[in-house]
Amino acid sequence: MDLLALADFNLVARHGGFGKASRAAGRPKATLSRRVADLEAGLDLRLFERGARALKLTEEGRALFERTAQLLSELDETAAAIASGGHSPRGRLRISAPLLFSQTAMGKLAAGFALKYPEVRLEVTTEDRPVDMIEEAYDLVIRVNPEPDDGLVGRIFLRDRLVVVAGPGLVPQADGAPVPAVVRGAAEPVGAWDITTATGRAKIAVRPVLSLSSLVMVRDAVRTGLGVGRLPISLVSHDLAEGRLVHLGDADAPEIALWALYPTRRLLSARVSAFLDYLKDAFPHGTPDELAAYLRQ
């Protein structure tokens, strides 16, 4: 397979058209069109559907783009490293991270990484949805308790757990009457939270009075004494130590595991490897206490 033709195909696919690719690369449009046509002829496949106004990848073209885009990027990176006489990470690194981790830790992590690796152009976006890494050109995603995906590999770099907390003046009554609660997202009007305390398992009847979309907002609202809340221990450990909140029990909920995920492939880019190592250095043991201490720095 002609690697130059394959590179031109990737250029056109990435920019969504011959004209846009030509302007971006400063290459003649006719040359790009001829190279892609030669590649199609060599493979005996149509890679693009050519309409009057739009150019669209065929199913075969999309599969080829998804399988070769990262490989070509790694080849360019390797060639640049060899030419410069070193192996320092360089180029663009796109990361998707969940909302809470982004709000509390990602800014400081990203800044520290950028200072250590100035030749890497780090781009971080915040979203809780499961992004399509190939389609949306992400190099690495951070996710909480992700569903298994055969196309991704990765590692857990942090663990956390949920606890039920309240302001010092708000303590559940012995008669089991519902207590006001601050929740994330929609909730039933009345319910119960299972908890584990020093004396065993128990239930807290709750009546949601406020629904918020961010756990940082939930914590801030719970601090006012409005209601109880279920929050990660790393987010409230300092408040518990200072007496601003009291610990009512550990929530009966799955462990929170933060994963760093990347597409399955034999060769991992130097940029992704460097960021994974940076996460490991920031959280050597991956415990909630480490994360809490990092947030207080």
Rank of each mutant, 00 (worst) to 15 (best):
V131P: 00
L122C: 02
D139N: 09
K108C: 03
A5F: 07
S234F: 00
Q173I: 01
S214T: 11
P130D: 14
H285F: 05
R266N: 08
S84Y: 02
L99S: 13
N10Q: 07
P146W: 05
L72H: 13
P168V: 15
I82K: 00
P180K: 06
S234K: 05
G91Q: 11
R161N: 03
E74I: 13
D277E: 11
L235R: 09
R265L: 06
R46D: 08
G243Q: 06
V216D: 12
A110F: 08
L158D: 05
E59N: 03
E123L: 15
R230P: 00
P148G: 09
A30W: 04
A83M: 08
E290R: 04
Q297D: 15
V124S: 01
A5L: 04
D277T: 01
M133E: 07
R53M: 10
P232N: 03
A79S: 15
P288Y: 04
I156T: 14
S214H: 14
G229R: 11
G91D: 12
R46M: 12
G249T: 03
L122Q: 01
I142P: 02
V190Q: 10
R14D: 12
F48E: 02
F275I: 11
V124E: 06
T78K: 12
H285A: 07
Y278H: 13
L231H: 14
A292L: 09
L99Q: 12
R184L: 03
D76I: 03
M106Y: 00
K116V: 00
L72P: 12
R62N: 08
Y117C: 02
R244Y: 05
P284L: 08
D149V: 04
V183Y: 03
G17E: 12
P263M: 13
S214M: 08
P208L: 13
L72I: 14
R223C: 06
D160W: 03
K203Q: 12
A202Q: 01
T224Y: 15
G107F: 00
A80Q: 14
L45I: 13
S213T: 14
V183M: 09
G19R: 11
E127H: 10
E66A: 14
I134W: 04
D250A: 09
G176Q: 07
G19K: 08
L261R: 00
D8V: 11
I204Q: 02
G286I: 00
G227V: 07
G249D: 01
E74G: 05
T126Y: 06
R129W: 04
M1W: 07
T68K: 10
E290Q: 09
A251V: 10
M1T: 06
A257T: 05
L240N: 10
V236Q: 11
R201E: 14
A260M: 05
T126M: 09
G243L: 03
G225C: 09
P254V: 14
L210I: 05
P180D: 02
A253K: 12
L231E: 04
G51A: 12
L226C: 05
S22C: 08
P168Y: 08
T68I: 10
R184Y: 06
A293K: 04
E66Q: 12
V36G: 08
L258H: 14
G229F: 01
L152M: 01
V120M: 07
L32Y: 07
A137D: 15
A221V: 13
E255W: 04
K108D: 09
R129D: 04
A174W: 10
